[in-house]
Design a protein around this nucleic acid. Structure first.
Length: 758
DNA sequence: ATTCTGAGCCAC
DNA sequence: AAACGTGGCTCAGAAT
C-alpha cells in the first residue's frame, strides 16, 4: 500500500503517467529519426533567411559527404543548433581548401624572399625601375604602435612580384627585422616612383622603421575616388561597392580576389599566416595594385585636366596629411577636468528637475531615459498637454522653449550632456600612449565633393582617432598650443561666395570684390536700387534687414532650398518668399542663368565640373526621370521605392550648384595646404595644425614676427587664385583653440609685457 | 554579444 | 510632388 502510493506520486498520477509514456515514445522515435527526417523537421521550422541559407549549405555538404555530424552528438537527435555549428566548421574547411588551392596555384612570378642576398638583388633591380608597386603587411592597423612584418614589391619590367617577410613573422625563414633598412634607399629614392593602395598608411608604417616613403606618384585608392567618387555611395541606380583593393580588382580587373577578412577571418594576425599563403596573398596585393594603376591611368588620361590635378595636387597631399596627422594635438587636461565637473554638476541639477516633472507622466516603473526620444516625447506631450509629433530640437522644441520651462531645461540638458559626453569627457581618454599626443585622421578623399573628412578610419575598429572638424566652440579651448608655441588661424574670407563670383561671372559679385565691398550688400543694392550704405552693415557692426535677407537667400541658393524652407528662414509666407526669389533672379540675370545652367548640365551629362575641370561630381540620378505615383497614393507603402527614387533625383539637382561651389573651394584649400606645408618645412617650429574646410590653423613659435604673419597671409591669398578676384584672409592668434586675439592685440600685449618686465 | 540603422546634433 | 549641401559620433532599438 505504502509502496503503491509512493509509485503513484513518482508518476504524478494518471495524467503524468501517460505524458511520461508519450515522452518515452518520442525519445525512442527521436533516436530512430533518420537524418532525412531531421532535415525535413529543421527546414520546416521558422528560420531567418540567413539561417536557411546556412542550413541548406550544410545539408548539401552532408549529402555530398564533405562533412559529418559532431562526434559527441552522434547518439543524440540532430538539431538546428548542431547544423548551425556545423556551418562554421564547413566555412573553416572551405577556407582551408581555398587557401590550399591558392597555394597550389601560386603564379610562378610570385617570389618569396628569405635570404639577404636575394633581398639585395631585388632592391638593386627595383632601383633600376622607373616605377614600382609597394605594399606592407603589418602586425595591426595602429600606425603609432604596430610594425611591418613583410613588404611586397612589384617590378613591372620583370613582371615579378616579391614578398619579403620580416620578423616578427612566425617562421624561421623570415628575415631579421634589422634588414628592413635594406629597403631604405629604394623607398626614399626620388628617381624610383611608387604606386600604392592607400599610401598614407604604408608611409606611416615605414616611418615606424625610420624609412621615408618618397615619390609616391599614384595611389590606386585615391585615384578610384577621382574615377568614381560614388563607388561606396548608396544610390538607387548603382550598386554600392567599396574602395578596398580586392573589391576593386574583382570589379574592374575581373580578377576575383578575396579580402583579408574573407581569406584569414577577422582579427587574424598576418605574422602568423604560413609563408606559402602569405606569398600568394601579399604578392597579389602589389600585382593587383600595379594592374589597377595601369587601368586607372588609361581611364583618367581621357580627362587630362583631372589627370594633371590628381598627379600634381592630390598626390602631394600624402605628405601634407602625413605630417598633419603625425603632428597631433596637446590637450589641456586640467581644463577638461574642471569643465567636465562643472558640466556634470549643471547636468545633475537639470536632470533632477526634469525627472521630477516628467516621471509622473512616464509609463512603467523604470526611470525615464532622457536619451530615448520616444520615451521623452510621450511623457513631455502629457506634461505640456500637447501631442508632439517628434522631438526635433529645431523645428518642434525650440519654438516652445519660452512657453514651457521644462522644454528649455530639456534642450539645455541635451546640449550639456552631448558636449560633456562626446567631447569634454571622452577626448581626454584618447591620448596616444606612444606619442603622448592626440591624433586625428584627415581624409582628402573622405567626401564626394573633395572636401576633407575627419574622424575614425572605418577599417580601424579600435582607434583613438576623432573628428577635428566638428569640435564645438565650447570644447575647443581644451586644445592648446604646445609649450613655447601659438596657434594661428587663417580663414578664407568669404571663400564660397568668391568661388561663385568666379564660376558665375556675376557682375554684381565681381564688382563687389573688385571694390573691396561687401558681397551681400552689393546683391541687395542690385535688387533694391538703394544706395550701398543703406543696405550694408551699419557702422556699429549690426546688420541691416536687407543684408540679413540676402545672406539667407544666398544660403538657400547654395543649398538648393525650396521656397517653403526659404519662407521659414525669412519668416514670411511661401508666396512672399517665392515672389522675392523671382524678383531677385530677374535683377541678377547672370547669376540666375548660371544657377539654372548647373542643373541643366547635370541633367544632360550626369555630372558637374569643379573649378577648371579638375574634378567631377557625378550625379547619375540627375539624368533619370521621375517615377509616376498615382494621385492620392503618394504616402502609400507600395510606392516607397518610387518616393526614394524621386527624392534622389531632387537631391542630385540640388547638388549641382552646391557641389561645384563646395568642391572648387575644397580644391583651393587643398592647394593652399600644400603651399602651407612647404613654407612650414622651411622654418623651425612651424607646422600645419589643422584644417576646417575654409580655414587653416598653423602652429608657430610664440616669438613670431609681423613678417611671419605676412608669410601666412601670402600663403592664404596667393596659393590658389580665382580669375580676377583677390582672395582675403582673417588671421587670429590663439594660445588655446577658439580664444582668438587679433594680431594688433597680440603685439600690443607683447609690447606691454616687455615694458612690465623692464 | 555584435552589427546595423535612424534620429539627433556638432562642424563648415 | 518634395522641399537643406558635405561630413562624423552617440545613443536606442532592432536584427543577427
Amino acid at each position: 500500500m505504502k509502496l503503491e502510493i509512493k509509485l503513484n506520486a513518482q508518476l504524478g498520477g494518471n495524467d503524468s503517467a501517460s505524458k511520461a509514456l508519450a515522452d518515452a515514445a518520442q525519445r525512442k522515435k527521436d533516436a530512430t529519426e533518420t537524418i532525412e527526417d531531421a532535415w525535413e523537421r529543421i527546414l520546416k521550422q521558422k528560420n531567418t533567411d540567413a539561417d536557411l541559407r546556412k542550413l541548406r549549405e550544410v545539408k548539401r555538404a552532408m549529402d555530398a559527404g564533405l562533412i559529418g555530424r559532431e562526434a559527441d552528438k552522434a547518439s543524440k537527435r540532430f538539431s538546428k543548433a548542431e547544423a548551425i555549428r556545423l556551418y562554421s566548421v564547413l566555412a573553416a574547411q572551405q577556407r582551408e581548401g581555398k587557401l590550399a588551392e591558392l597555394v597550389a596555384n601560386t603564379p610562378s612570378n610570385y617570389v618569396l624572399i628569405t635570404d639577404e642576398q636575394s633581398l639585395r638583388q631585388v632592391v638593386a633591380d627595383a632601383l633600376n625601375e622607373p616605377t614600382i608597386a609597394v605594399d606592407t603587411e603589418t602586425t595591426g592597423l595602429d600606425v603609432y604602435v604596430d610594425v611591418i612584418v613583410g613588404v611586397s614589391l612589384t617590378i613591372p619590367s620583370q613582371d615579378k612580384h616579391y614578398y619579403i617577410p620580416f620578423e616578427p613573422t612566425q617562421d624561421e625563414r623570415a628575415l631579421p627585422s634589422g634588414l628592413i633598412s635594406e629597403l631604405k634607399a629604394l623607398m626614399e629614392s626620388q628617381s624610383v616612383a611608387k604606386v600604392l593602395h592607400n599610401a598614407l598608411y604604408d608611409k606611416a608604417m615605414f616611418e615606424r622603421h625610420g624609412i621615408k616613403l618618397n615619390n609616391v606618384v599614384w595611389d590606386t585608392q585615391w585615384a578610384m575616388h577621382m574615377l568614381n567618387e560614388n563607388e561606396n555611395q548608396e544610390l538607387p541606380n548603382r550598386k554600392k561597392g567599396t574602395f578596398r583593393l580586392k573589391d576593386l580588382a574583382t570589379k574592374y580587373l575581373k580578377e576575383p580576389s578575396d579580402t583579408y577578412d574573407e581569406m584569414f577571418g577577422k582579427n587574424a594576425k598576418f605574422a602568423e599566416v604560413p609563408l606559402d599563403v602569405a606569398l600568394v596573398y601579399a604578392a597579389k596585393d602589389t600585382d593587383l595594385t600595379w594592374r589597377l594603376y595601369e587601368f586607372q591611368r588609361l581611364h583618367l588620361s581621357k580627362e587630362p585636366t583631372m589627370l594633371e590635378y590628381f598627379e600634381n595636387i592630390e598626390m602631394q597631399l600624402i605628405d601634407v596629411v602625413y605630417r598633419l596627422e603625425r603632428h597631433g594635438y596637446v590637450l589641456d587636461m586640467d581644463f577638461a577636468k574642471q569643465y567636465g565637473e562643472k558640466l556634470a554638476a549643471e547636468a545633475k541639477v537639470l536632470y533632477d528637475d526634469i525627472i521630477a516633472e516628467l516621471q509622473p507622466h512616464h509609463e512603467g516603473d523604470a526611470i525615464i531615459n532622457l536619451n530615448a526620444p520616444e520615451q521623452k516625447r510621450l511623457a513631455l506631450s502629457k506634461a505640456i498637454g500637447r501631442e508632439l509629433p517628434n522631438m526635433d530640437a529645431k523645428r518642434t522644441l525650440k519654438p516652445l522653449r519660452k512657453e514651457f520651462p521644462i522644454i528649455d531645461k530639456l534642450l539645455e540638458y541635451a546640449r550639456i550632456t552631448k558636449l560633456a559626453g562626446t567631447y569634454i569627457d571622452s577626448l581626454p581618454l584618447k591620448q596616444n600612449p606612444i606619442t603622448k599626443r592626440w591624433h586625428s585622421r584627415f581624409n582628402p578623399m573622405g567626401t564626394v565633393t573633395s572636401r576633407f573628412s575627419s574622424g575614425k578610419d572605418e577599417e580601424k575598429k579600435e582607434s583613438n582617432e576623432f573628428n577635428v572638424q566638428n569640435i564645438p566652440g565650447d570644447a575647443r579651448p581644451m586644445f592648446m598650443a604646445p609649450k613655447g608655441k601659438v596657434l594661428i588661424s587663417a580663414d578664407f574670407k568669404a571663400q564660397e561666395i568668391r568661388g561663385v563670383a568666379h564660376l558665375s561671372r556675376e557682375p554684381a559679385l565681381l564688382e563687389a570684390f573688385r571694390l573691396g565691398r561687401d558681397p551681400y550688400a552689393m546683391l541687395a543694392m542690385q535688387y533694391t536700387g538703394l544706395p550701398y550704405e543703406q543696405v550694408n552693415k551699419k557702422p556699429d557692426g549690426s546688420d541691416t534687414e536687407w543684408r540679413k535677407k540676402m545672406k539667407v537667400v544666398w544660403l538657400a541658393w547654395l543649398y538648393g532650398s525650396s521656397n517653403k524652407t526659404l519662407a521659414e528662414w525669412l519668416g514670411t509666407s511661401e508666396k512672399e518668399a517665392s515672389t522675392f526669389m523671382d524678383e531677385l533672379k530677374s535683377s541678377l540675370p547672370i547669376l540666375s542663368s548660371w544657377l539654372e545652367g548647373n542643373v541643366e548640365f547635370a541633367k544632360k551629362n550626369g555630372f558637374v565640373w569643379m573649378d577648371k575641370q579638375q574634378r567631377k561630381r557625378r550625379l547619375p540620378m540627375a539624368k533619370e526621370s521621375r517615377k509616376k505615383i498615382p494621385w492620392g497614393k503618394y504616402w502609400d507603402e507600395a510606392y516607397k521605392k518610387e518616393r526614394a527614387w524621386n527624392a534622389e533625383i531632387g537631391k542630385a539637382s540640388r547638388s549641382a550648384t552646391n557641389s561645384r561651389v563646395q568642391g572648387s573651394s575644397a580644391i583651393q584649400t587643398k592647394v593652399t595646404m600644400i603651399e602651407a606645408t612647404k613654407e612650414c618645412e622651411k622654418r623651425d617650429g612651424w607646422a600645419l595644425w589643422a584644417t576646417v574646410h575654409d580655414e587653416l590653423i598653423f602652429e608657430l613659435p610664440e616669438d613670431f614676427t609681423q613678417d611671419d604673419l605676412k608669410v601666412i597671409e601670402r600663403i592664404m591669398t596667393q596659393s590658389y587664385k580665382w580669375d580676377g578676384i583677390e582672395n582675403g584672409t582673417d588671421i587670429a592668434i590663439m594660445r588655446k583653440w577658439g580664444e582668438e586675439m587679433t594680431p594688433e592685440e597680440w603685439f600690443k600685449q607683447k609690447e606691454e609685457g616687455t615694458c612690465k618686465t623692464q
